[in-house]
Structures are given as structure tokens and as C-alpha cells.
Simulated scan of single mutants.
Amino acid sequence: MMKVIVFLAEGFEEVEALTVVDYLRRKDIGVDTVSITQNNMVKGAHDITVIADKKIDDINNLDRYDGAIIPGGMPGAINLRDNARVIEILSIMNKDDKMVAAICAGPIVLQRAGIIAGKRVTSYPGFEEKLKDSIYMEEPVVRDGNIITSRGPALAVDFAIEIIKYLRGEEKAEELKEDILYK
């Protein structure tokens, strides 16, 4: 079974994180929600507290994972961007050509990891100037090789669909669309 990490930091955007977790699990993609602190309880940007499956210090074998996902939200994206272990994990996954995905303000984490230079990306409006060296696009979801980015909370479903398409193929993405009455 394919498996990914969804990083959670204080102030994460709940819709962006939990929609992705739900939809990936529906299509048999294992997801570990990972707190970047020593506390499994992580409060989102809108005061919804989530119990993460793991803490970042529990992540020691990246070979078990096929990718990592960065939700947006403030100050969640800043907290992820400023976490050296998150940056290290994203850099390794990118080097190993594994999927790295970020939504909303999340692409600032990819910028810090140095993995979007020359790549087509998108983000929440207003973050484009923070994504130096990338090719910025005002599209709902942008995929460039192993990098997937999206603009914001209303696009969490489209973001999840693109991740499923990348990891499990078009057929599984279409199944999800049918399952959730997307069409």
C-alpha cells in the first residue's frame, strides 16, 4: 500500500489537511498525520484540535513513504517552514523523486526546502512573491513532475484528486469523484 505523510503544525488549515487525509484513505493510500512537536494534539487555524498519528521524531525510515503533504493555514505554514526536520524530509523525498505536495500558503515550505526552483507552482494569492525562482501560475492545481501545489481551502478536493491521480492513477481519481458526487 502506498503511504504518505501529512504534516500538522499549530495553525494548520483544517479543511486542507483533513479533506486530503479522508480522500486518500478512501482510495487505499495510507496516511500518517504527523505532528511537528512532541505533542500529538495539534490545534488548527480555526480551533479544531486533531490527534496526529505520529510525532515527527517517530519518522526515521522514509523508505516507508511515497510522499509528503503540506497543508496551508497560518501560522501553520510558517511553523512547517521553520522546522528543520520537515525541510530535511521534503528535501530527501524530492531527491528520491517522491511526491511532494503543498496547498495554500504551504508552498513557502517547498521554497525553504529549495525544491521548486524552475518548477511550475501555485499558492494562495499574495504568496507568489515568496516563491522565488519558481514559475508561478494562477491555476487551481498545478503539477510539475513530483511537485503538486494548489491555491486554497475551496480547492482541497481538487488537490486530493490530483494527489490520488499521481499516486494511484486516473482510474482511482475518477472513482473518488464518483464516490463523492464530484461530477
Results as ranks from 00 to 15, higher is better:
95 K>C: 14
145 G>K: 11
53 D>L: 09
76 G>C: 04
58 D>T: 11
91 S>T: 10
104 C>G: 00
175 E>P: 03
122 T>W: 07
73 G>S: 07
47 D>W: 00
17 A>G: 10
87 I>P: 06
57 D>T: 03
101 A>Q: 03
57 D>N: 05
109 V>H: 01
149 T>E: 08
9 A>R: 04
183 K>H: 10
181 L>V: 00
174 E>H: 11
1 M>W: 12
44 G>E: 05
114 G>T: 14
173 A>G: 15
19 T>V: 13
26 R>A: 01
151 R>W: 00
42 V>L: 12
82 D>C: 06
13 E>V: 02
60 N>Y: 07
163 I>Q: 11
181 L>G: 11
164 I>A: 09
20 V>G: 11
12 F>V: 13
96 D>V: 07
130 K>N: 02
7 F>Q: 00
10 E>K: 09
154 A>W: 01
32 D>G: 08
85 R>C: 01
113 A>K: 06
81 R>P: 08
94 N>Q: 14
132 K>L: 12
41 M>A: 15
77 A>T: 00
15 V>L: 09
86 V>K: 05
166 Y>G: 13
127 F>A: 00
160 A>H: 05
117 A>C: 11
12 F>C: 08
56 I>N: 08
121 V>T: 15
177 K>W: 03
123 S>Q: 11
160 A>K: 01
49 T>G: 05
81 R>E: 14
64 R>Q: 06
51 I>N: 14
132 K>D: 07
137 M>I: 13
65 Y>K: 13
1 M>V: 14
123 S>T: 13
88 E>N: 07
128 E>S: 07
154 A>V: 06
37 T>P: 04
68 A>C: 14
105 A>G: 02
2 M>Q: 15
127 F>M: 06
26 R>Q: 00
146 N>Q: 15
12 F>S: 10
137 M>A: 11
3 K>I: 08
69 I>G: 09
179 D>H: 00
107 P>M: 00
141 V>G: 06
130 K>W: 00
70 I>M: 04
152 G>K: 01
143 R>S: 14
129 E>S: 08
106 G>M: 13
6 V>R: 04
92 I>W: 02
58 D>G: 11
101 A>V: 04
34 V>K: 05
174 E>T: 12
74 M>H: 02
42 V>H: 09
28 D>Q: 04
80 L>N: 05
180 I>P: 04
113 A>S: 12
157 V>T: 10
74 M>K: 04
72 G>M: 05
139 E>I: 13
120 R>H: 15
29 I>Q: 05
130 K>I: 00
28 D>T: 02
124 Y>N: 04
141 V>S: 03
25 R>D: 03
58 D>I: 11
136 Y>N: 09
85 R>F: 05
65 Y>D: 11
67 G>N: 11
134 S>E: 10
90 L>G: 07
8 L>Q: 09
132 K>G: 07
74 M>S: 05
73 G>F: 02
123 S>G: 12
162 E>D: 14
128 E>N: 08
44 G>W: 04
69 I>A: 07
109 V>P: 01
60 N>S: 13
